[in-house]
């Protein structure tokens, strides 16, 4: 990974530093560093409207591209995968402008840390969420591109998966510019680096694999064979093996299709069986109780009917009796 050392030297912003935009004049007080990578440093900052994430970079081109992507996301109604975009500006540091942009601060736990804490049973559920969001994004004609655990955050307390770095998002049919080898279809020899739905679905499969191989592994020889072997070696991955295989081979037409299969697996998974069993037990209980009430109602109805019957019978008999007595008197 190429990290930006020159930017790091230039602006190692300490908590409390104040950044004011050259164009819009909005002030931001730096609270802490959230992370840094190839094209910049992201800080948590306090703005007039609350906490925001602020990304500084000295690379005009990459920061402008990212800004464009975030902006076009804001236009997509209901898109909730990435952070929403607030504004872009320049910070004058000793007379030299350093571009930055401001976006929503997504608070939560990193995907890998979350799984480590809460356990494997969350993997499938979170991927279901991710696939829903991806389906939405794909319908707009975009691929996410650089999909990996490092870019995923599980928000707390809602436990909803979100993405924090949208820099790799690419229009379908164009080339993926940002990727991470382990999650890249091209690296494993399973297809091109052209953006399409299957590119992202491959990455989702690799995120699932990565969840059981936290240290990841490098390619040796035939990519497909190796991935198959790695899936076989981890028991936790076995339930997913069919979905993983199809996703790795690019056989899913849409994120929704993969989601459907994953859902089917999660409902049948042994670990989940207990939960499922419990819930069906509960369901059965509920069923029982409803059937109970139903039968009770029936019984009540039967009772009522019985009562009516005896009543009619009694009246009939008493009428007969009255008639008999009447006859006797006559």
């Amino acid at each position: 990974m190429m990290t930006n050392h020159s930017l790091r030297k230039q602006c190692n912003l300490l908590p409390g530093s104040l950044i004011t935009g050259k164009w819009n004049k909005n002030p931001y007080r730096i609270q802490q560093e959230l992370g840094y990578g190839a094209n910049g440093i992201v800080y948590l900052a306090e703005s007039n409207n609350g906490q925001v994430a602020l990304k500084l970079s000295d690379d005009y081109s990459s920061i402008s591209s990212e800004m464009n992507i975030l902006k076009s996301f804001s236009k997509v109604q209901g898109h909730s995968l990435g952070p929403s975009f607030f504004e872009a500006d320049d910070w004058l540091k000793n007379g030299r402008p350093i571009p930055f942009y401001v976006m929503e601060y997504i608070k939560g736990e990193g995907y890998s840390a979350f799984i480590e804490q809460k356990g494997d049973s969350w993997v499938g559920v979170l991927m279901l969420q991710l696939l829903s969001s991806l389906d939405e994004l794909h319908k707009q004609g975009w691929a996410f591109g650089d999909l990996k655990p490092d870019n995923l955050i599980v928000t707390i307390p809602a436990y909803k998966i979100r993405c924090i770095d949208v820099g790799g998002t690419t229009l379908f049919g164009r080339s993926i510019k940002e990727f991470t080898e382990f999650f890249d279809r091209g690296y494993w020899g399973m297809g091109s680096r052209k953006a399409d739905p299957q590119y992202d679905l491959f990455a989702v499969a690799m995120i699932i694999i990565n969840s059981f191989y936290p240290k990841r592994f490098s390619k040796k020889g035939d990519g497909y064979k190796q991935l198959n072997e790695m899936i076989k070696q981890k028991k936790g991955l076995h339930p997913y093996s069919k979905v993983l295989d199809r996703a790795v081979k690019g056989q899913y037409q849409s994120a929704d299709e993969m989601r459907h299969d994953l859902l089917g697996i999660l409902n049948r998974q042994p670990e989940h069986k207990k939960v499922e069993a419990q819930s069906t037990f509960q369901g059965k209980k509920n069923n029982n109780s409803t059937s109970q009430t139903r039968s009770m109602r029936k019984k009540r109805k039967k009772k009522k009917r019985g009562l009516l019957e005896t009543l009619i019978l009694a009246i009939f008999v008493s009428i007969l009796y009255v008639l008999y007595v009447y006859n006797q008197f006559l």
């Binding site: 164009w23 005009y60 081109s61 402008s64 591209s65 800004m67 464009n68 902006k71 872009a88 500006d89 320049d90 571009p99 942009y101």
Partner: peptide, 10 residues
Amino acid sequence: PPDKRGEVME
């Protein structure tokens, strides 16, 4: 300005 820069970058 950043907005125009975004357009150029496109």
